[in-house]
Design a protein around this nucleic acid. Sequence first.
DNA 1: GCAAGGTC
Length: 945
Amino acid sequence: MIQVRTEMILGEAKVHRNDPEKPSLALSIATILSQNQARSRKSYLDVHEWDGKFQGRKAHFRMTSVIGHVLSLDFPPKFQNWETTDPASLFDAPTVKTEATPKAHVCKHLQQEARGCSYLVLWLDCDREGENICFEVMDNTLRWMARVPGQQVFRARFSAISAPEITAAMEKLGEPNRWEAESVDARQELDLKVGVAFTRFQTWYFQGKYGNLDASVISYGPCQTPTLFFCVQRHQLITAFQPEDYWTIRPQVAKAGHRIDVEWSRGRLFDRDVAQLFQRIVTEAHILRCTEVSVKEERRQRPNGLNTVELLKIASSAMGMSPQQAMRCAEGLYTSGYISYPRTESTAYPTGFDFQEVLVEMRGHPIWGDYASSLMSGAFAPPKGGHDAGDHLLIMPVASAKSDIFQSGTSQGGNDAGDHPLMVPSAANPTANSGTSQGVHDAGDHPLIVPVLSATNLTANLHTQGGHDAGDHPPITPVASATEAELGGGDDWRLYDYIARHFLGSLSGDCLFRRTIISFAAGGERFSASGVAPVRAGFTAVMPWKAVQGEPLPPLQEGESLPITEVEIKQGKTSPPDYLTESELIGLMEKHGIGTDASISVHIAKVCERYVSIQSGRRLMPTELGVTLVRGYQLIDPDLCLPLVRSHVEKQIDLIAKGQAEREAVVAHTLDQFARKFRYFVAKIDRMDALFEASFSPLASSGKPLSKCGKCARYMKLISVRPSRMYCPICEEVLNLPQGGTVKLYKGLACPLDGYEIVLFSLTGPDAKTYPLCPFCYNNPPAGAQQVAGPGAGAKAGMPCTLCPHMGCQHSFLRKGVTPCPECDAGTVVLDPVSGPKWRLDCNLCSFMIYLPETLHAVKLSKDRCQECESVLLKLDFKKGASPLPDGQTETTACVVCDEKIAALCTAKHGRSYAKRRGGGRRGRGRGRGRGRRATDPLMSFRDF
DNA sequence: GCAAGGTC
């Protein structure tokens, strides 16, 4: 009997669920393994199923995917409160794993699909994060699977989604690597604890201290802080720069009417008199003698395969796109099936990469189709656009004027008829006009020599080319052919255009050119001139912006003399470097291992949002806050902002991944190091504070006077930038306020407990609450008070008057409270004293509220209570002519709970409607005054009507 | 409100 066994195979999702025609990873693998027999169905994520054989026995396969990490690490709720948690305690705090994207229901999905399966084959990315996700998947499947003897969990190892690679991986399944997975767990814990501890401490320390420090959070992180450091380091170089005057001399010479630019071997001199001396000497020599002519063939290497970092650099420097935008476009192109997976480190094509397949697809492209064909056949044809008389323009990414790419001429081995520019005009690309052939990039006088490669030796040739195969994903290549119109133009098209050209360029020959260097002498001084002439365009035929710049020199013989018409002396000033470009930053991050191909753009976006402003040319200028922070770390503990913080952690977790150390030991040791640094940082924070003082205004000089201090009777200031708070310049006291609303004086009333002037806090929006608070009590509640956690309270929860339990205060809920809240069972419904003309009762804890009858003129609390339900009776004063009371009466004292006529005129909001509950049976009555003891007595809540 | 890492 052949038992039908069930098997589950999982791949990491790169699924474009709305577009089933395009390949997704799970679907691709399923298609390959099932030989196109898989059937797909929808669940929380797509599931592909088919019948086949597993380990020689019949099996039913079920394949689905996850979406990156299933779980993410965080602190338990107890440690989430910024006010009550000492950041130093976070180093020893427990951590919990929670679902990374709860809305996606990945855990439930896995558990559901695991039922009935006997085996698990994991097809996640073959890196440490992938290994870690394997275990996250196992945690959500194994317990739900059937138990069978022998190995149940298998790991497939592959580096590309090609049929041979996938089938080979299926042939030799292994096991997931626990060490590697644990190294990721260690990294997560270190990143979390270190980042959060420093972030909370810095934020707490500086945010409350300076009025114009407009930052909701002052963050620290092992990746973001070194990223910021790179930007600030350049800023410091610029500000420390001392310009110097320099002089250089330049003899004017020409050959056959062709001016020759010569450079002095001494370059620049920093002494004017000496430069003038040389000027005289060379002038008196009258002639420039050619001493040597050297001609060398040089080559510019074709590009390696394109990886993420390179793509982001080009997108920033040549297209003016932010890394985030570039990734967004690339992801879109990927999920739509136009390019391969865009997050890769590899620049070398893997063995067996199917170049043919891509070239065949590219062959039909209107711009570079012929070029792709020529690469396949070994015959050369330039990309279309050589003669542009139609709609197809040769599209170049937009270059900045200073960029060294995209500057060359535009014709592609043919003559431009001149009727249309070949390049899409762009303000940033002033050289984009026709017929400007420069250097090797020729308009057609010399036929371009092109490598002759057959399709087979093309492949062979590539393997020797170099680049780096990180074993993750192949380099980024086009997958499907697309035109500008199909992609809707814009950034998508520009990025795709680049990716396609880069791919073709990487299969082309090197660019060859001849460099001529002519040496000259005059009066014992040496000069030289350099020129280039094209030999073979190679890959620059399809990447014309890479063409070699420069012009050929006129022919000159050794020993030949040229008359000097004049010797120019040029004065200049040395100048500082410019601000770091985003592209340079990406390079630095890659070099120092800050972030990954998938996260570099995220770190840059975060740093730009918080600490850096983007200048023209995508140069990064740190803000005052950015500079102050880094300078502060440098003063206290430079390690904190150096790229070292990252590499140190990496080194530590390498030990775990390689099985050379226990995870617990490494984490404990590294945490101890950081905890020590943290304590030192806290102890020396005044050094950083001194810098803040110089750059930001202390609270004393900001804010506007609002209410009086109960201690000194002088006006305190309201600081309205977030976090809004009050400050007494005399007592040097900071008093927190609820956030997200407006604060104004409350009739000049003072708190009877401490003498501080009371303010009214109002939230904004419909049904927004207004409540009085004493600035002092709010921060220093009387004994027995609970603190508000409702809207507007923010993390810095305080105690407004509506929660004040003090009998001596007329604003306390004991004096303003009407009845316990029917909604939250913990709060008290109090009269909002300023809600008129639309009088209202609000719960002092939850959002429940009752609008009193609209025809009311005024409302007050009486001293009496309802005999039935013990609610405080309200003195109601109705408008004349609009009173519901009999006999033209306008005043009454009533219980809004028990007086059915009045209750019917009220409207409850944000809670169960009490009107519906009428007649529901009243329970318990006659309980004592006060509240909060309703556990034993649900009493007269509105729901009991 | 906090890190960095996946990925949509």
